[in-house]
């Protein structure tokens, strides 16, 4: 079974973001970029499926600027066999990414597609679900466990209030939650080997997909700053403040 993994290049999760002075967007110039953390978990899960003999090939795909090839090389270093880069400098919304991925699914015919549940830049949490709808495949979102068994996959999902397990027919779409696995670090020899692994470069036009969206970003602002308050010296003072000043007890 072939496994397709989608990854996204995003701002590194440790970086404190700045809003541009003209409020047009977040300023990404000279900011450290990295693979979206949920995508790292997706790559790890795909590689583990290959190590277990469930997957025969792992294909990584991304949609983004030329620099996003760095993240594909990371995926290759972590164990993906080959990569597909759909190159565009446009701001691509989840729907357009899902349409492009649907074309890749059509071409590659994977048994399983694994994506991160959300990217930490737009925080959309949409692409996997949209891909499932467009390919008319079942979805197991927010996965904390994925067990392939013959023609089905059992996905345990992190839902409000606990866990839910669903059984899906294959092929299926899975999106990862935090506890699915702990991604490994790439080793230097693997990073070197990854440079020689095949990478196809395509454009949205090659797939006949228009990436323009009907949603426009009017402005981006910093949220209202919360001011720090006071330090209290004791539990008694804390209770007093909460009762008599904040009036929340």
């Amino acid at each position: 079974m072939k496994v397709l993994v989608a990854v996204k290049r995003v701002i590194d999760y440790n970086v404190k973001i700045r809003v541009k002075a003209d409020h047009s967007d977040v300023d990404l110039t000279n900011v450290k970029m990295a693979m979206n953390p949920f995508c790292e978990i997706a790559v790890e899960e795909a590689v583990r499926l290959k190590e277990k003999g469930v997957a025969t090939e792992v294909v990584a795909v991304t949609v983004g600027p030329k620099a996003a090839q760095e993240q594909l090389r990371t995926a290759l270093a972590l164990g993906a066999d080959r990569a597909i880069h759909i190159e565009t400098d446009a701001r691509v919304e989840s729907l357009a990414v899902a349409k492009l991925l649907a074309k890749v699914v059509d071409e590659e015919q994977p048994g399983l597609v694994i994506l991160g549940k959300q990217a930490i830049d737009t925080d959309n949490n949409q692409t996997g679900q949209m891909l499932a709808a467009l390919t008319n495949l079942p979805q197991g979102t927010f996965a904390s466990e994925v067990v392939v068994d013959g023609d089905t996959v059992n996905v345990t999902r992190e839902i409000d209030g606990g866990l839910q397990t669903v059984a899906l027919t294959l092929p299926a779409i899975v999106t990862t939650d935090l506890r699915l696995n702990e991604p490994r670090y790439a080793k230097l020899p693997d990073i070197m080997k990854a440079k020689k692994k095949p990478m196809d470069v395509k454009t949205p036009a090659d797939y006949g997909i228009e990436v323009a969206s009907k949603v426009s970003l009017l402005k981006v602002e910093s949220p209202a700053e919360r001011k720090g308050g006071i330090k209290v010296a004791s539990v008694d003072e804390l209770i007093d403040k909460l009762k008599n000043e904040a009036k929340v007890l």
Partner: peptide, 19 residues
Amino acid sequence: STTGKNVLPRLAALKDVSQ
């Protein structure tokens, strides 16, 4: 919620609109 997030993007994609 985890239900809204799970279900609504499917509708959006089927209707060819963003969410």
